[in-house]
Amino acid sequence: MRKSRIYIFFLLSVIFTSCVPTKDLIYLQDKGNSNNEVVTAAKQKPYRLQTNDILSITIKAIDPKLVEMFNGTVNQGMVNITAEGNYFNGYTVDDHGNIRLPILGEINVLGYTAEEVRIKIEKMLYEQFFKTEAGIFVVVKLAGFRYSIIGEVASTGTKIIYQDRVNIIEAIANAGDITVVGDRKDVKVIRTYPQGSETFSIDLTDSNAVNSEVFYLQPNDNIYVKPLKQKTWGTGKTGVESLTTILTLFSLVTTSLILLQL
């Protein structure tokens, strides 16, 4: 009788320790260390261009014919906005930090923000080719917000989102969400700078994650979601799965012992 209780206790212990707790699955929980009455500014530094970034640049004027030569064939008509289209039609920052525009030639943009590049191009156009009356209007954007995500998510790989600001929740949702056995408490964000790279950790189960410096991503960030220990054990994600695995193992051991005694 005592042995039976021990076996039952052991079985229940294994089931409960091998399941993934609900608190490990819920995003942005209030863990008692947040103040809902205080609104803090988002910690997002302006992104500064790096080599291999791709820019989408459009130059407009009151009379469109005046700027046709600056746009070349890239912005004439409707352009199909795809990753492939951006690669072939956009302006890639080369290893020297330059982009090459029609007529204007090479322009150094390394370390500039998109807004600073827009101002720089407008200034060049007015100084070299146009008067104020021409009404020059320049649009400079990154050709899609690109990031990579690996680990315990539904869809890994390099992703592109066509918006200016992307937070980590949006990025993970775009990858199909973190799986049940993914560690939401220690998501790694690897950020590249001209001088090297830095790895950050963010707990997405804590509501204070919105105050993290990596809650808002920067282009070319890499996200890694590591697995929970439950996946390593291989016992199952829920109590039912764990019980099924344990019973199967128990049945296998029992059958083996019976066969050995024959």
Rank of each mutant, 00 (worst) to 15 (best):
K3W: 13
F9E: 06
S13F: 08
F16H: 00
V20T: 05
P21C: 04
D24W: 01
Y27R: 04
N33L: 04
S34Q: 06
V39C: 06
A42N: 06
P46H: 04
L49M: 11
I57A: 00
T58G: 08
A61L: 10
A61M: 04
K65Q: 11
L66Q: 08
E68T: 09
G72K: 08
M78R: 09
V79D: 11
V79A: 11
N80C: 10
I81M: 11
E84N: 05
G85R: 02
N86I: 05
Y91D: 01
V93L: 01
D94N: 07
D95M: 09
H96R: 06
H96I: 07
G111I: 09
Y112H: 06
Y112R: 04
A114P: 03
E116W: 02
R118M: 07
I119V: 15
K120W: 10
M124G: 07
L125Y: 01
L125M: 05
E127Y: 12
K131R: 01
T132S: 05
A134P: 03
V140H: 01
L142I: 03
A143L: 04
A143P: 00
G144P: 01
R146V: 13
I150T: 12
G151F: 12
T156S: 13
T156R: 05
G157P: 09
T158Y: 00
D164I: 13
R165E: 15
A173N: 14
I178S: 08
V181E: 15
G182C: 13
G182L: 10
R184I: 09
R184P: 00
K188E: 15
V189H: 07
V189A: 11
R191F: 11
Y193S: 15
Q195E: 13
S197P: 14
S201E: 14
S201H: 14
L204P: 03
D206H: 09
D206S: 10
S207D: 04
S212Q: 03
N220T: 09
N222Q: 07
N222S: 07
V225T: 05
K226S: 13
P227M: 02
L228E: 07
Q230Y: 01
G239D: 08
L249H: 12
L252M: 12
T255H: 00
S256N: 09
S256C: 09
L257I: 14
L260C: 09
